[in-house]
Amino acid sequence: MILRIRIGGLGGHGILLAGRVLGTAAIYAGYDAIMTVAYSPEQRGGWSKADLVISDSEIDYPYIDEADILIVTTQEMFEREFKSLVNNGYLIYESSLVKPSQTSLNVRSIGIPAISLAEKTVKRRIAMNMVLVGGVTALSKIIDPKHVEEAIRSTVRKGTEEMNVKAMYAGYDYVRQLLY
């Protein structure tokens, strides 16, 4: 089993943190995981991208050319990275920030109103990334949300654990309802 997840967005969207939480959850679940990160050349205000590979066997080459799941929080990253999605891959996007301008029969798209869900559940727009993490968790089915919760608690800033966990479950429930 190998799962390749690409997360792209704006610096400040918590892209790296989302990747770290998912990777940590994968490690807790007994998988191997590797994440590589890329940024636009500018130090502030540019795009950022995290590529996460999760596998039940040892991962050798850490980079990915294509993704099984693409998560985007900006239109720019959608346009840039859509082509990297494999056939039968999943596109997850923040539905107030991204309007998919192209699509493909072989791609399943899921728009999540992550910002409004975050605002509704924890009153913090910034928890949008955790809503998306929850969405991916529901979609991937290989990681138990318990592991994600544990990963959040060990990864996020002290005092923000509950908020982030709540936001994650909001995203998890949202996608589960869509799927089933």
Partner: peptide, 9 residues
């Protein structure tokens, strides 16, 4: 740089 910047187990 790859090992240094890679996030892994």
């Amino acid at each position: 740089q790859v090992i240094g910047h890679m996030i892994g187990k």
